[in-house]
């Protein structure tokens, strides 16, 4: 095991471009899911896909320079996703109790 700071190796057999390409593809799939679905649960799932793709981009970039900063940003994104999912699901439960549907288009009126 390496002690202390790792001397950054610029060579990795998986180029950073491919990792970022995978992150971009997953992110765009998440965007398609958010835009195309009407069910509010699926919209939240697609948001999770996008967050995961962003984390993957950070890990791929961190692996390029063998730095731990990528993993630290990923852990922060993970904590953010956990908090966002809990609040989002509580919102979905409230939304379902007020309008007995999970149709996102039903949330079309603002009440005082």
């Amino acid at each position: 095991m390496n002690e202390g700071i790792v001397v950054a190796e610029m060579t990795a057999d998986v180029p950073m471009q491919y990792g970022l390409l995978l992150a971009a593809v997953l992110f765009s799939l998440g965007v398609i899911g958010v835009l195309a679905r009407r069910n509010i649960i699926f919209i939240l799932m697609s948001i999770e896909i996008m967050l995961n793709a962003a984390g993957l981009a950070f890990i791929a970039a961190g692996a390029r320079w063998a730095a731990a900063d990528g993993q630290i940003m990923f852990i922060l994104i993970l904590a953010l996703a956990a908090a966002e999912v809990s609040v989002g699901l509580a919102l979905i439960l409230q939304f379902y109790h007020r309008t007995v549907t999970v149709d996102a288009d039903a949330a079309s009126e603002m009440r005082g």
Partner: peptide
């Protein structure tokens, strides 16, 4: 698995335990 291959085993473990194991179970 992609994380593990990119040399981030800690992130791979966290992804399985926290993301797939806690957040998706909450879903």
């Amino acid at each position: 698995i992609v994380f593990y291959v990119l040399g981030a085993p800690f992130a791979a473990a966290l992804e399985v335990i926290v993301y797939a194991g806690a957040i998706m179970v909450l879903f």
